[in-house]
Design a protein around this nucleic acid. Structure first.
Length: 802
RNA sequence: GCCUGAGUGGCGGAAUAGGUAGACGCACAGGACUUAAAAUCCUGCGAGAUUCAAACCUCGUGCCGGUUCAAUUCCGGUCUUAGGCACCA
């Protein structure tokens, strides 16, 4: 039988016997394995998908054999811009395009023999799915965490869409790579910033990889310092600054506020150069994020003529400037500038000829700012202190006592911009009424579905295409009944993926988003795999979403995911990212056709360290095919036998231990090499027993499930492997009867000796001394000591060293 | 600039409670089978010195130094590289 037939046969067997179905009412212990559900693009499945899916499939299969009730679900993250763009280009409804793509993807996944529980399949674009996404949005609204606000947001002019901070990479749109600009827009926002501390401390409850944790910690960006109030001269108004170095307050010689700071409007009639300030503000707004944050550009700014502020510790009058190096969206949008000890302030002070006061000894402030530690000077009650923590604490104590300042903690993490001006997303279930303001769509009226239209083009006005469909947006107010208007923005594509792992637990439920019973049984995701690019996007959003649900008692765990691993990318053979234009795309279908699904899976597990980026190699997959062919070939050496062959016994026990361990910590490459070693040994023998062969096939099964089942059946080795138990090993058999150890003289290898299981240390040394080469190197010199490491080496130390 | 990782043959990569560096696979070379090729099988394969050949010897895990009987593994320094953050106050 050829590969294709064998694969099809076993895929049907698994299906028919519902081997991978995970019942919700099982008495078994649960295990939840999750892959990031794919976006069903028109390009079809990528060999990169195959890598991570095969890996977690192996975990799922092994866990099942170990007796767990394993949930390994699959679905589709099908909202989003590419589907919409495809629809515009080809003039078909995104719904239709998505359905077609899903069909293709599904077919591709099926031929790989992945052990998904297809009965739980879902798509974020299904009405009975996004009904609950909308339902949860209303929960956010109900608890005051969703609000609409007009503010400057990131805007991608080429995608014609507002972006969340997480969707920007160094000033460029994450999707299209175009430069992001600022635009004042009314947007729905989710108050993620209030969850900064919870998201930070929650990381301790997870087993994420260090690099993922670090990425999130950096993104949340916690800093500790103080807020200090500066009085505005001849006014009751204050300007509050945030600083991490309150102890340098005596060195403050000016203040800088963001060009957008509201105090400017407030004191408009006192300001003489309002026109100049307004002009500067407009120029700043026009700048792209990239230009504004360019570190190399010269400092610019304008002095405000009309008011100044008073340094609360010494009553000095300080000038106030506006400059784009101060951001409105961080801290208080105002800083106290201490040019002697801050590079940016120093540069600004030099340019605008502002005085510089040294308050920390140690540098030469005539030449450069000094940012190191040192003794406090020119600072009244802080003088003489050398410990930063001490001087900070003393200053904060002083500020609090005088009620002009307080300790403060700031986070870089901002609220989540949640509106998108596009057609293909979940409609935000809100209605605007002139009398009642924003009114949520009543729960019983969900879902708010997308209309059937023919135009999905985005508009330049920054409105969603839905804003053109009066029939859809004209509704009556649920509260007072007068004519009102539906929100025409839709949710970002991150919405549906923020909770899909919960829906999998109970995907057919039409009464609740997921039942408490299912939540309590399945609990956290035990093992979650996805791309590194989601470390500060999807993974952060999903944690935030889940934590909110936890806080309102809808889910039982603070953190949704336990272990998170990320796979490395699979590049083309030339080391470049696979792309049609470069002609280096490897299509998984072609690989299955040519080598079979098992060989493809084996190669992708064997190709490299799982987390590392790796180049595709056609020779590599050939090698794995060769390996599987050899596995089939040794079948004709099988003789009946209920024990392992004597010469394989110890190696088999070692292999069980090693493969079990390696599959538990994603070391697939070494698991496979262990099996290759075992196979090489089996090939040397004239006969192998049915037990030898069976154990080999069982160990290989999670990686190459079809061929192993087939061989198991052909040689009548036992019941189907998928219905069998994972093997255990005997600790006492790990050491072979006889084995080799190394002999060293002064730590250098000089020979090996063969010993057996119960050779004593004394005998080992004796044997070692008999070796010709060892005798030669001892050369009659005095032996100081001998070191014996059990099972590894004998080292003879002689005096000879210089 | 700050925070994480990672540097081992021609290539992908093994081996870290310190203990035979290069497992396993690929590529390559030689041989067997074949009219021939493919496939398959066997042998070799870090660098260098020596030798008819081998044993044996020296060097070798980014670089410099340290601890140790013994260091890819531990410590100090340094370089390169990938990723995250960044006029963040």
């Amino acid at each position: 039988m050829n590969n294709k037939k064998i694969e099809k046969k076993w895929q049907n067997f698994w299906d028919k016997n519902e081997i991978f179905k995970a019942p919700n009412n099982s008495k078994k212990e649960k295990y939840y394995v999750l892959i990031e559900f794919p976006y069903p693009s028109g390009a079809g499945l990528h060999v990169g998908h195959v890598r991570s899916y095969s890996a977690l499939d192996a975990v799922a299969r092994k866990k099942r054999m170990e007796g767990y009730n394993v949930l390994f679900p699959i679905g589709w993250d099908a909202f989003g811009l590419p589907a919409e763009e495809y629809a515009i280009k080809n003039q078909i409804h995104p719904k239709k395009a998505v359905a077609e793509n899903i069909k293709t993807f599904k077919k591709q996944l099926k031929i790989l023999g992945l052990s998904f529980d297809w009965s739980r399949e879902l798509s974020t674009t299904d009405e009975d799915y996004y009904k609950w996404t909308q339902w949860q949005f209303l929960k956010f609204y109900e608890h005051g965490l969703a609000y609409k606000d007009k503010k400057a947001i990131n805007w991608c002019p080429s995608c014609k869409i507002g972006l969340a901070n997480e969707e920007i990479e160094a000033g460029h749109c994450e999707r299209c790579g175009g430069q992001v600009t600022q635009r004042d827009k009314e947007q729905w926002m989710l108050k993620m910033s209030t969850y900064a501390e919870k998201l930070l401390t929650g990381l301790a409850d997870t087993n994420f990889q260090e690099k993922i944790k670090t990425a999130q910690i950096n993104w949340i960006g916690k800093s500790e310092g103080a807020e200090i109030d500066f009085k505005i001269d001849n006014s009751e108004e204050n300007l509050t600054v945030y600083t991490t170095r309150p102890d340098t307050l005596f060195g403050a010689t000016f203040m800088v506020i963001a060009p957008e700071h509201p105090i400017i409007k407030k004191l408009e009639n006192r300001i003489i150069n309002m026109d100049d300030l307004e002009k500067y503000r407009q120029e700043t707004a026009k700048k792209s994020e990239l230009e504004r944050t360019d570190l190399n550009k010269d400092k610019t700014g304008i002095k405000i003529l009309g008011f100044s502020v008073i340094n609360p510790v010494n009553n000095e009058k300080l000038p106030v400037y506006i400059s784009d190096y101060v951001m409105m969206n961080y801290g208080t949008g105002a800083i106290m500038a201490v040019p002697a000890h801050d590079e940016r302030d120093y540069e600004f002070a030099k340019k605008f000829n502002i005085s510089i006061i040294e308050v920390i000894k140690g540098g030469n402030i005539e030449e450069t700012p000094y940012t190191g530690d040192g003794e406090m000077i020119n600072s009244d009650f802080l003088n003489g202190l050398t410990n930063i923590n001490e001087s900070k604490a003393k200053m904060i104590e002083y500020l609090e006592e005088k009620r002009i300042g307080r300790p403060a903690i700031k986070y870089r993490l901002q609220d989540w911009v949640f509106s998108r001006q596009r057609f293909w997303g979940e409609p935000i279930p809100m209605i605007y009424c002139k009398e009642c303001g924003w009114v949520p769509v009543p729960y019983e009226e969900l879902p708010v579905t997308l209309p059937n239209v023919t135009e999905y083009e985005p508009t330049d006005t920054g409105e969603s295409p839905l804003a053109k469909i009066a029939k859809w947006y004209e509704v009556s107010c649920p509260k007072c009944g007068i004519k009102a208007r539906r929100e025409t923005d839709t949710m970002p594509n991150w919405a549906g993926s923020s909770w899909y792992f919960l829906r999998y637990m109970d995907s057919d439920n039409d009464k609740e988003f997921v039942s408490q019973k299912a939540l309590n049984y399945w609990g956290k995701v035990d093992w979650y795999n996805g791309g590194m690019e989601h470390a500060t996007r999807h993974l952060l959003y999903a944690r935030f979403w889940n934590r909110f649900l936890y806080d309102i008692n809808l889910v039982p765990h603070k953190e949704p995911f336990d272990t998170r691993v990320s796979h490395g990318m699979v590049l083309g053979e030339n080391g470049e990212k696979m792309s049609k234009s470069k002609g280096n795309v490897i299509n998984p279908n072609d690989m299955v056709d040519e080598f079979g699904a098992d060989a493809l899976r084996t190669y992708e597990m064997f190709m490299s360290d799982y987390e590392k980026e790796v180049n595709w190699s056609m020779n590599g997959i050939k090698g794995c095919k060769r390996f599987l062919d050899r596995v089939s070939k040794i079948g004709n050496k099988v003789i009946k036998g209920s024990n392992y062959s004597k010469s394989l016994d110890s190696l088999i026990h070692c292999s069980i231990k090693k493969v079990t361990h390696d599959l538990d910590c994603l070391k697939y490459n070494t698991a496979i090499s262990t099996l290759m070693i075992l196979l090489n040994k089996m090939e040397e023998l004239d006969n192998i027993t049915t037990s030898d062969y069976r154990i080999f096939l069982v160990l290989l099964n999670p990686i190459a499930p079809h061929i192993t089942e087939e061989l198991n059946e052909i040689y009548k080795l036992g019941k189907p492997i998928c219905q069998s138990k994972w093997p255990t090993y005997d600790e006492t058999k790990l050491i072979a009867e006889t084995y080799n150890i190394a002999v060293q003289v002064n730590g250098k290898l000089r020979g090996t000796i063969t010993i057996n299981k119960d050779t004593t240390e004394k005998e080992m040394v004796k044997l070692a001394m008999k070796e010709d080469n060892v005798i030669k190197h001892i050369n009659g010199q005095e032996i100081i000591k001998t070191i014996v490491i059990k099972g590894k080496i004998v080292n003879i130390v002689i005096k000879d060293q210089k």
